[in-house]
């Protein structure tokens, strides 16, 4: 079959070119993680407890924001109850460790599982409503969670919260130094990045993105839209649960005011600032918010103004002002 030989060669060349493109993309992707690790080491080199504390907050926010990136960035579900899931993780750690005497390390899987379950329950609303309505419904769910945090006093400690969460212990050594706590948060963050990177590149991640782009298209290709949404919410909750555990064990206290709607808005800002589907940019968004919060902490009025501006920015993003979808109202 001499005649088909040039065609075969042409086909092999095209496949080779496509494979080379994919290899380059893979190399670029693989270069990002070592870069992140190098950046995460930098705060450890600065002998300042305050810098380490801000870096720890940034890393914790990073884990939280990565969870939100699963549900918004990959799956396209705009929710406003992420702070509540963060709270579930923190309260799970606090209640088990402080009230029931469980080793704080053992509370991590419980915090993750409980927050994942809470996430899935929250996700049930996404089976019935979408878009802005989903944001409103989940906002209400977040407020309900707040009521539980404040009102279920015998368990959650009410307004006082849980003031004495035991510190983590590693081989007899208490992890109370800011640099140690930051290192732990950074390790969890790297793990979360690896998980999300793998998720994004998987068939499941592609299915989530198809839901984000077009649910009809997703269903036509065999994607169980409802089931995938629930799993996305559960995964998002799992990330938030891990972040909540980090927060509770690092600060040594759980306070209901931390997990309010303002934090949900800030998480949305962290993710939207970066472009919802971009894993590493989301981390930059989280670091930006953590640093800004620290800089403005001595200026409460300015901080309140900044939060107000953030809310306006989120609403403007929803209305498409920052994208090509926006058209001026006539």
């Amino acid at each position: 079959m001499e005649g088909s030989r040039p065609l075969e060669v042409a086909q092999q060349l095209r496949w080779f070119a496509a494979a080379r493109l994919r290899r380059h993309a893979r190399l670029r992707r693989h270069a990002r993680l070592p870069t992140l690790v190098v950046l995460l080491v930098l705060p450890l080199l600065i002998p300042s407890a305050h810098v380490a504390s801000v870096a720890r907050t940034a890393a914790t926010y990073g884990v939280l924001a990565l969870g939100y990136a699963v549900v918004l960035g990959l799956c396209g579900q705009f929710t406003m109850a992420h702070a509540a899931l963060f709270g579930v993780g923190a309260y799970a750690a606090g209640i088990l460790a402080a009230n029931l005497g469980v080793d704080p390390w053992l509370t991590l899987p419980v915090a993750i599982v409980l927050a994942a379950i809470a996430g899935a329950v929250l996700g049930l609303s996404a089976l019935r409503v979408a878009g802005d309505l989903l944001a409103i419904v989940t906002l209400a769910a977040g407020q309900l969670a707040q009521l539980v945090f404040v009102g279920w006093t015998p368990v959650t400690g009410g307004n006082a919260g849980i003031p004495d969460v035991p510190a983590l212990r590693l081989g007899g050594h208490l992890l109370i130094e800011e640099h140690e706590l930051y290192l732990l948060a950074a390790l969890v963050l790297v793990l979360a990045v690896v998980c999300l990177d793998r998720l994004k590149g998987s068939g499941f991640g592609l299915a989530l993105q198809s839901i984000r782009e077009d649910e009809v298209l997703a269903a036509a290709n065999g994607v169980a839209v409802g089931g995938h949404k629930l799993i996305a919410f559960a995964l998002s909750g799992a990330f938030a649960g891990a972040a909540g555990w980090l927060e509770a064990t690092a600060i040594g206290a759980v306070s209901p005011t931390t997990y309010d709607v303002v934090l949900s808005v800030l998480v949305a800002v962290m993710v939207l600032l970066a472009g919802a589907g971009r894993v590493y940019a989301v981390l930059a968004g989280a670091a930006f918010v953590a640093v800004l919060q620290d800089l403005l902490s001595s200026l409460p009025l300015v901080e309140t103004g900044a939060i107000g501006a953030a809310i306006v920015a989120v609403i403007m993003w929803r209305s498409g002002v920052f994208t090509r979808r926006w058209r001026p109202a006539l």
Binding site: E213, L217, A220, N221, G222
Partner: peptide
């Protein structure tokens, strides 16, 4: 779709920000 019924649409429906390869890959979901 899981039973092996595939379709195309009158107005093409594709994942706009994704690559051609990823769009075709979605057809292998099942």
């Amino acid at each position: 779709a899981r039973l092996g019924v595939a379709r195309t649409f009158q107005t093409t429906r594709l994942m706009e920000p994704l690559t051609v390869g990823d769009n075709v890959l979605l057809g292998l979901h099942c």
